[in-house]
């Protein structure tokens, strides 16, 4: 730049000094790091940390919707563990989550392997598979409610009229079967997410690995065991962590199908929390029920994340 041009575009010395200081400051990696992370941290504080600590505060009080309440320490938690319905609900939630995630895993991986193959109308099928994930939860649940209806179940109609059964199963009436039914619907809804996520992982595996292993004489199962599974595992574990979180805190499907009945056989922590906190107005108790999800989820997720990290390092 020529001297005359520099003189023409020059800024007052104080401003130039400030600008240089700001540039130097921003060039400092530590400062820039904080600057970039700052907005995210603020968002997390506002949207995650603040509500979380408010919930903790509620859980340690006897607050109701109409009354500020007082600090009662851990009494809400003590009362919960004394309560048979809560203990039953906790058990239901664990079975519901384990059952649903297992089904999602099996069907999701199976579906992904099929969708990864070349066949006619593959794109159409891939889109169709996403339907349970796309349709609003309430709509899907209403359809299942009709299919499981004690009086008008279309599944039972088919079973009876095809001669397979004299009388159809009591999908939502029998306590054990009811828990299975809500678990099945949750798995139905979550399987497409698992399938599509795993499919994305499968498609990132270089085809040369399969070609060379085929030349070496590896069977289809050996290729799945030693190439597909290890390479897709990080994606799979991430999908698994998300599935566990979503299933553990699911509300809509159970509430839509049974409202926790019959006889609390399908109550999960989210529906019980709603019942206590909003329907009955006991905000303290409702918050305590919700917070009991936390340690269980925390341990599960920490374990999964460590595995993912170890795999990534490996």
């Amino acid at each position: 730049m020529s001297a005359s041009l520099r003189a023409a575009t020059s800024v007052p010395p104080e401003r130039a000094l400030w600008r240089r200081r700001l540039t130097d400051w921003a060039d400092n990696e530590r400062v820039l790091g904080y600057l970039l992370v700052g907005p995210v941290v603020l968002l997390l504080i506002g949207l995650v940390a603040y509500p979380f600590f408010v919930a903790v505060g509620y859980a340690l009080s006897d607050r109701t919707l109409a009354d500020e309440g007082e600090f009662i320490g851990l009494e809400n938690f003590y009362n919960l563990f004394e309560n048979q319905i809560y203990r039953q609900t906790l058990g239901n939630t664990l079975i519901f989550t384990a059952g649903s995630v297992t089904m999602r895993l099996v069907f999701g991986v199976g579906l992904a392997l099929i969708l990864n193959e070349a066949f006619r109308f593959r794109r159409l099928v891939r889109s169709a598979v996403l339907l349970p994930w796309i349709v609003p939860t309430v709509l899907g649940t209403m359809a299942w409610l009709w299919m499981f209806n004690p009086n008008f179940s279309v599944i039972n109609w088919v079973l009876v009229h095809s001669g397979l059964m004299a009388q159809g199963p009591n999908w939502l009436t029998d306590p054990d079967l009811a828990l299975f039914s809500v678990t099945l619907v949750n798995a139905w809804r979550g399987t497409p997410f698992m399938a599509i996520t795993v499919l994305a992982g499968l498609q990132s595996i270089p085809s040369e690995l399969y070609d060379s292993s085929a030349i070496d004489g590896a069977s289809k199962f050996q290729r799945f065991r030693h190439i597909t599974l290890p390479l897709v595992m990080p994606v799979l574990l991430t999908a698994l962590v998300l599935s566990i979180i979503w299933t553990f805190s699911d509300f809509g499907i159970v509430y839509g199908l049974t409202k926790g009945g019959p006889m609390n056989a399908t109550h999960v922590l989210a529906t019980l929390s709603y019942q206590a906190g909003l329907a009955s107005g006991n905000i303290g108790e409702g918050a305590a029920i919700s917070l009991t999800m936390l340690p269980i989820l925390f341990v599960l997720i920490l374990w999964q994340l460590r595995r993912i990290r170890r795999m990534n390092i490996a």
């Binding site: 209806n149 004690p150 009086n151 009436t173 049974t258 409202k259 009945g261």
Partner: peptide
Amino acid sequence: FIPGTTAWLDPDNNQA
């Protein structure tokens, strides 16, 4: 009773 009443929600008795 007709089977299934332990799973009845509000609309079910109407429908039945």
